[in-house]
Amino acid sequence: MYKKRLAIPYVIWSGIFVIVPVLIILYYSFFEKGVFTLNGYKQVFNPRYVNNIMDSVVIALISTVICLLLAYPLAMILSSKQISGKGVILLLVILPMWMNSLLRTYAWGYLLQDTGVVNNILEGIGLPTIQFLYKKSAIVFGNVYNFFPFMVLPIYNVLCKIDQSVIEASYDLGADKITTFKKVILPLSMPGVVTGVVMVFMPALTTFLVSRLLGGGKTTLLGDLIEQQFKITGDWAFGSALSVILMVIILITLVFMSKKDSLEKGGGLF
């Protein structure tokens, strides 16, 4: 009974700041001026907006894959007991998170602009300048830079908790390093991978800050589209419908990743 009473403030907080906003979004997605309508959802299937949604999903997936490919080897290196100075490397990974994401993105926009520091360096050493900004690749770069720590830390945390005796047992049974990684380390690290993928994919899918500052507004993503409906066009029904679609995509991602994690755990080590 005492524990249930302690949970009451959290239940109230969740109800006010999670459940109530979701219910309001659902209401506005189905009702316009008090009249039931599906116009908001019909607009979602407009080819123009479908392309925006697909661009958002593709860019978020690419950003997530790049983060995973970069973060997993780094987490493996950091989790090794032989490496020294891992605290410094971890600090360098975490340090950007201490700054506001808006300032970080603005800084990269200044560094990568046509007359920015990077192009000035290229020009100074006799190399041709490159247009880094206002492309989809710039948005991917911004996503990877901003969300990379959210991939590294969960994987690193799980790898550090793997019992070394299990790995040693794999070697004793004749497995080489590649087989040990595929059959032991990778399956045991899947909870961290799943957490990292979810923590990168979701903000990469919903961001509108990176696409605006580094993409120059040339690529309209799902987050930009939702913001426009509420702040500019005033079409709350369409904006709410897009928000519901976004929640559905995120829920599908969570279900898929949780099932994948369950299959990995249930499959055993060998």
Rank of each mutant, 00 (worst) to 15 (best):
I89T: 11
I62C: 11
V58T: 05
L263I: 01
K4F: 08
K161F: 00
Y28Q: 10
T219G: 05
I226Q: 00
L61K: 01
G109M: 02
L242H: 02
K182G: 10
S262Y: 12
V117L: 15
R212I: 01
P154V: 03
T207Q: 10
S63D: 02
G268L: 13
N51C: 11
V18R: 13
I12V: 08
I8G: 11
L213A: 05
Q82D: 09
L38P: 08
L246P: 04
E168G: 12
G15I: 09
N46D: 08
E168A: 15
P191Q: 13
T220N: 05
K33I: 01
P203K: 03
Q82S: 06
T219M: 11
F132S: 00
S84Y: 07
T64C: 03
V50K: 13
Y134I: 15
L111W: 00
S262V: 13
M97L: 11
T253L: 13
I94P: 09
F141L: 14
F148N: 12
L127Y: 00
V35W: 07
G109H: 00
K33F: 05
F36G: 15
F141Y: 06
S211Y: 05
I77C: 11
P9K: 14
L95W: 03
R104H: 04
C67Q: 08
K33T: 04
P21S: 15
D114H: 14
D235V: 11
K183G: 05
V65S: 13
T115S: 12
N119R: 02
R5T: 05
Y28P: 14
